[in-house]
Computed example of a mutant assay.
Amino acid sequence: MTKSTVLTLVGSLRAGSTNQQLAEAIQLNAPEQVDVVIHESLGNIPFYNEDIDVEGQVPAAAAALRAAAEEADSVLLVTPEYNGTVPATLKNAIDWLSRPFGAGALAGKPTAVVGTAFGQYGGVWAQDEARKAAGIAGAKVLEDVKLAVPGSMVRFAEVHPKDDAEVVEQIKGIFDALAASAPAA
């Protein structure tokens, strides 16, 4: 059986981010036939600007992101919520992946959105915004995949998400949905 690759983009750049920890928990709980790749350099990608998105001159970090997305079978966005919406780093990544219009690296790619946030709703506004942006960018957004962990700073203060039985159980559902969305071989 061929392994499938899930490119995972984490919207928080903060060391010790609960969203980074969630991505790690997802990676650790991936089925044997799934390779979860956490893309580490979102903070190095310049803000999207058509003037620098020129063939042969695309910034290296943006080109690497596009290549990783093109090689992946699906994409997982892991987002915190900043001021009620998606962080600029994650939105910027979606912007780079949306180009060229209609043929970007997200076009037709099964994409799920999950995350944690300090607030009582677990970042659902940011997740909704990320789903909307990814869908407009051409992704095949898996609207039914939901994992929003509220109160993350308290909940994960002493326990890593990989050790939270409820979170681990919900992670299994993410992989089931991604597997179901895969194109027939």
Rank of each mutant, 00 (worst) to 15 (best):
G173M: 03
Q27Y: 02
P183W: 00
P110H: 04
L7K: 09
I38T: 06
D164H: 06
P110E: 06
N92C: 10
I52G: 00
S98I: 06
I171F: 02
P59F: 04
Y48F: 15
S12A: 08
A182Q: 14
V58T: 15
Q20L: 14
G135M: 10
P80G: 05
G123W: 00
I174S: 07
A137T: 07
A112E: 08
A15I: 01
A182T: 06
A134S: 15
G43C: 03
R131W: 09
A185Q: 11
G151D: 10
R99T: 10
T2M: 10
Q33N: 15
A105E: 04
P31L: 04
P110G: 00
L22A: 04
I171L: 08
P183M: 01
S152I: 07
L178M: 08
K132I: 04
V78Q: 03
Q120L: 12
V154H: 10
G135F: 09
V34H: 09
E40H: 12
L28S: 12
V34M: 10
A148N: 05
T79R: 09
S4F: 01
V168G: 03
P59Y: 00
R131S: 08
E70T: 15
A69C: 15
V167N: 07
D128R: 14
L9N: 08
D73K: 06
A157W: 09
Q120M: 12
A30Q: 08
T2Q: 14
R66M: 11
E40T: 14
G104D: 06
N83Q: 10
V114Q: 01
G104Q: 09
A103I: 00
T111K: 02
D73T: 09
T85G: 15
G16C: 08
P31E: 07
I174W: 07
A137G: 02
M153D: 13
L22F: 07
E129I: 04
S98T: 07
S12F: 06
S12R: 05
F118N: 13
S41Q: 15
N83W: 10
K162N: 07
Y121G: 11
A126N: 09
A130L: 04
P100R: 03
W125C: 13
T2K: 12
N49Q: 05
G16E: 09
A60C: 00
L65G: 13
E129F: 11
T18V: 04
V141R: 00
Y48G: 04
A69F: 02
L28H: 04
Q21Y: 01
V154D: 14
V114F: 00
L147T: 08
V37D: 07
I26C: 02
S152L: 06
N19E: 04
Q27M: 08
R14Q: 14
V145C: 02
A148L: 02
A130G: 11
A157H: 13
A177E: 01
F47T: 05
N19L: 11
T85V: 12
V154G: 10
A25T: 09
K109W: 03
V168R: 10
L142V: 06
L9D: 08
L13W: 02
A148G: 06
A117T: 03
H160R: 05
W125E: 03
L178W: 01
A179P: 01
G115V: 12
